[in-house]
Structure formats: structure tokens, C-alpha cells
Simulated assay, not measured.
Amino acid sequence: MGETRFDIVAMGDAIVDVIASCDDEFLDTHGLPRGSMQLLSPEAADVLYAAMGQAREMSGGSAANSMAGIAAMGGKAAFIGQIADDQLGAIFRHDMRAFGVDFATSALSDGPPTGRCLILVTPDGQRTMNTAPGASHELTAATLDRDLIRDSAILYLEGYLFGPDKPRAAMMEALAIAHGAGREVAFTLSESVCIAARKEPFLAMIDDGGVDLLFCNEDEAIILTGLATLDAALAQLSAKVPTLVVTRGQAGALAIENGERVDVPAAPVGKVIDTTGAGDMFAAGFLTARAKGHDLKRCLETGGLAAADVIQRYGARPDGDMRKVVGL
């Protein structure tokens, strides 16, 4: 395929995270299932935000977090996502560029505000995510930088953004551009709560050969296939995608590529502070190692080290240079 300007370009939600600690009683009071993810209207987000305790703001979004991680590990990353021309949009753009991620998508001058995710962290480190997508779901195919997609070795698509019609159409257009240029397309299912309403288009995309590398966790694999066991789900999915990567929490992770299965244990972790971004950093580590030509085992191990690093502190993004953390 030859050299490319970027290792990975991602498409996903452009979101600013607002993170605060809370107790289980707060979640019960507001009817929020612990450890879950739900979508909020801008108005409902305003109500919840007013009730939250002292918070810190930092740019987020699943694929955007992964691109920040890739840049921190020495990879060449770019991002496509929709922001609004407002304060949170300016924060998001600044943060992406400060990490060294190429981000040039134009901001919307009218329409909904930049998306935000209100993240509540309980004492056990679990995060409950409440997302008001806002402008991020206004991404259209007309926004795409086609040359950027052609000049990236891997196109990484985020499941969170795959639901609404506009960004889904943009993703499918980007997928066609990437495959037309001989590039690899990676997809992350993002969250089990997303799968029920999107199962048919997810499976159609996979059945049509649209996905070269699929990221999911155990629950997502089972829910997507509708099968009773993980082994059955793995058999079905690995027959349809060239590379299947499954995270298993404390049990580690596995990958199946062209019939070869590799399992690795979880990386050592001290105290879990905040699980926000664990999956995002795992994908970042795996993709960075893959872009550098490492084998499956090393890619899985790199992902595990990156995930272990991020859950030992607040927030879903790197805290400085991660090359030594993951050994790249």
C-alpha cells in the first residue's frame, strides 16, 4: 500500500467530558444505572449538570480519545468529527491539536451545541456516562476530507456515531473511500447499549466485508451475534472479519486473525481510580503497535498496558508521553 501520511484516521463523536465524583445514592436519585451509558437531550443534560458536584472538563469522545492515545504513543493520528462554533467546540479543537492529532473539520455556525458527556464516577471507579451528542450527530458525508482518508493506513470507525442517519451515511462513504484506496477499516462496537437498535446495520456492514478489524468486549460479541456463549460468538464473528479483537476485563484480551487465536492476560493494575477510557486506550495501543508492524500478541499487550495506565487516574486521555508506558 505504500507509505501514508497518517497511521490512523478516526471518525467519531466530538465530545467534551464533564467528570465528577458521586455516590451510589446520587445515581439512584437521578435514575441512572451504575456503569451504564445513556443519551440525554441538551435540556436533560442541563438539569443533571446543575445537580453534579465539582467537575473537571476535558475533551472526550471514544475514537477521539483513542487518537489522542495513538499520538501520545508516537503514532500519526487524525480525527474527523463535528463540533459547533462555541466555547466547548474551541476547547475540543485545542485539546486535539495539543495532543498532536490532526483535526481540521469545520465547526457548525448554527444548529445544536458541541456535544458533552456528563460522567459520574463512583468510589469503585465505575463510570456512568450521560451523553448529549449535540453537533457531533450532524456530521455529514459532505464534511469528509477524502484525501485524508486515502492517505491514512487505517480508518477507525466508532459505533457510538453509527446510529443517526447523517453520520452513518458519512461513515459508509468513508469506508468506501478507504477500501477504494486499499486501506484497512477498523470498527469498534463502543458499548453494548448501542447494539440493540443498530444490530441489523452492524451485521450488514460486517457481512458485506466492510470491517477488516473489529473491536468488542465479551458482552458485545454475545449481544451482536445473539448466541449463548462467547465461544460461539467468536466462531461466528471470526469467520466474517479478518481480525477480531475482544477485551475481557480482568481476564485480559484475545484476538483471532485468519484462524490464529492469541490470548493475553490483563496488565497489572495498582488502584483503579476511573475506568473511563479503558477500551479507548486499549484500541489506541493495539492500533499503534499494529501500525508499527508488531504481531498480534504484542498488539494485544500494548493495548492492555495502555488501558491499565488510564484507569489508574481520572479521565480518558493520556497524561503525557506514553511511549515508555507501552514500550514503543
Score class of each variant (00 low, 15 high):
residue 73 M to A: 12
residue 66 S to E: 06
residue 89 G to I: 07
residue 95 D to F: 01
residue 65 N to H: 07
residue 96 M to C: 11
residue 94 H to D: 15
residue 78 A to E: 02
residue 86 D to L: 08
residue 70 I to E: 03
residue 81 G to T: 00
residue 94 H to I: 07
residue 68 A to T: 12
residue 83 I to E: 05
residue 90 A to K: 13
residue 59 S to H: 03
residue 59 S to L: 00
residue 69 G to H: 08
residue 68 A to K: 09
residue 59 S to Y: 01
residue 90 A to V: 03
residue 84 A to Q: 07
residue 74 G to S: 03
residue 88 L to F: 15
residue 95 D to S: 14
residue 81 G to W: 01
residue 90 A to Y: 07
residue 101 V to S: 10
residue 80 I to P: 02
residue 101 V to C: 10
residue 74 G to H: 03
residue 66 S to H: 04
residue 95 D to P: 04
residue 96 M to K: 09
residue 76 K to A: 11
residue 62 S to G: 08
residue 86 D to A: 09
residue 95 D to M: 06
residue 97 R to Y: 03
residue 93 R to A: 15
residue 65 N to S: 10
residue 87 Q to K: 13
residue 94 H to S: 15
residue 93 R to Y: 02
residue 71 A to D: 08
residue 64 A to S: 11
residue 87 Q to G: 13
residue 60 G to C: 08
residue 101 V to N: 10
residue 78 A to R: 01
residue 61 G to D: 10
residue 58 M to C: 13
residue 83 I to S: 05
residue 73 M to F: 06
residue 75 G to Q: 02
residue 68 A to N: 10
residue 82 Q to G: 00
residue 91 I to P: 05
residue 69 G to V: 10
residue 68 A to V: 09
residue 59 S to A: 14
residue 100 G to L: 11
residue 98 A to V: 11
residue 91 I to D: 14
residue 62 S to T: 13
residue 72 A to T: 10
residue 89 G to K: 07
residue 88 L to C: 11
residue 82 Q to S: 05
residue 81 G to Y: 01
residue 97 R to I: 13
residue 65 N to F: 06
residue 95 D to I: 07
residue 85 D to P: 02
residue 88 L to S: 13
residue 63 A to S: 13
residue 58 M to N: 14
residue 85 D to A: 09
residue 80 I to M: 13
residue 80 I to S: 00
residue 75 G to V: 02
residue 102 D to R: 15
residue 92 F to G: 08
residue 64 A to R: 03
residue 63 A to R: 08
residue 66 S to V: 03
residue 72 A to P: 06
residue 92 F to D: 11
residue 85 D to H: 09
residue 98 A to W: 04
residue 81 G to I: 01
residue 65 N to G: 08
residue 101 V to R: 07
residue 92 F to A: 11
residue 68 A to D: 11
residue 102 D to G: 08
residue 69 G to D: 10
residue 79 F to G: 00
residue 71 A to T: 10
residue 64 A to F: 05
residue 101 V to F: 08
residue 92 F to H: 13
residue 77 A to E: 05
residue 61 G to T: 04
residue 69 G to L: 03
residue 66 S to G: 10
residue 61 G to A: 06
residue 94 H to T: 15
residue 74 G to I: 06
residue 70 I to C: 01
residue 69 G to W: 07
residue 63 A to V: 06
residue 84 A to Y: 07
residue 77 A to S: 12
residue 100 G to I: 12
residue 66 S to D: 06
residue 74 G to E: 08
residue 76 K to I: 00
residue 99 F to V: 13
residue 80 I to W: 06
residue 60 G to P: 08
residue 64 A to K: 03
residue 85 D to C: 04
residue 74 G to K: 00
residue 102 D to V: 15
residue 96 M to W: 09
residue 67 M to G: 00
residue 59 S to E: 07
residue 84 A to H: 11
residue 67 M to R: 08
residue 97 R to V: 14
residue 68 A to L: 05
residue 74 G to N: 01
residue 65 N to I: 04
